[in-house]
Design a protein around this nucleic acid. Structure first.
Lengths: 154, 154
DNA sequence: CTGGTTGGTTTTCAAACGCAACTTGGGGCG
DNA sequence: CGCCCCAAGTTGCGTTTGAAAACCAACCAG
């Protein structure tokens, strides 16, 4: 099975991975969440090859995750901004970061902390159940067929 | 920059992506969370090439995310189980799924729902601030240098 | 001793990646 | 005007990674 065929699976994880699973895409989004918007900045910040960066930015714009807009006319300059769809990926980035903090940070501790501006404190966001408000434990969770399931999810 | 060099960056997202960012790795983990443990089951469930599956399972075992254990002596049969490190990836999978549900599910709705067994209800987990308990909005969050930062995170 | 199952490895080929150089559309300087 | 610089890519080309299919080995059942 080709990787791009993930798009057609009846699984939201597979479909999302089909979009975000290409190399570099998630780190590019990290930069975007940090406020980097210009091609050159991203290229320098990541050390990524320019053609790959161009390709990924193009894909993300196609997907509606980033928006390319001209911010200056003469000379023409562009920036890439997160759309709402892109901002909704924040939990993905946070969960990746938290796991990395726990298992890859080593003795020095996490390289980046998060501050929740509306309450003014450093925060470690956690997942809670929308019904009972308790923290989520994977062993307490069961998947269940939903309305969009057409073929067995295997 | 080669993709594998992400491992050395002072960024927990980059480091995590260096581990999970290979094609198929995240869908393999999805299967693991669904309780699939055997090579053949995963191969059939995913339609992935056998060599790739063998390679990815090996990497995940190396990383301590899965554990390979013999569950039967004669003939020798193995299974791959999530370790605690692996189970801690649950938020990553959930956040990917939720985003996919919102943007890729289409009219039919999500293919898979989650039931929180300890409260007995369908749930849509959400991130809350560990300090004030409010839901996380990406625009309210600011990254801040942490103790593990050695070079500028760019 | 033939066939089937599990859990892989080998071989072969195509697709994706990475680098450096080049291009385009504009400055700015003397 | 002539020359050099910048941002934002594009092109060409070689290397790495990924995918498909075939093969292998241990075992069991009939």
């Amino acid at each position: 099975m080709r990787h791009s065929a993930l798009h057609d699976q009846p699984c939201s994880i597979a479909r999302t991975v089909a979009v975000l699973g290409e190399r570099w895409t998630l780190v590019i989004l990290r930069q975007a969440f940090q406020g980097q918007r210009r091609f050159e900045d991203m290229q320098r910040g990541l050390g990524i090859a320019r053609n790959i960066l161009a390709d990924r930015l193009g894909r993300l714009v196609e997907e509606g995750i980033l928006e390319r807009r001209r911010y200056q006319e003469r000379p023409p300059r562009h920036e890439y901004r997160l759309t709402e769809k892109g901002r909704d990926l924040y939990p993905v980035l946070v969960s990746l970061m938290q796991w990395g903090d726990r298992y890859n940070a080593g003795e020095a501790g996490p390289p980046v902390l998060l501050v929740h501006e509306s309450c003014g404190h450093e925060t470690h966001p956690s997942y809670v159940c929308s019904h009972c408000g308790e923290a989520i434990d994977p062993r307490e969770m069961r998947p269940k067929a939903g309305p969009g399931l057409v073929a067995p999810a295997a």
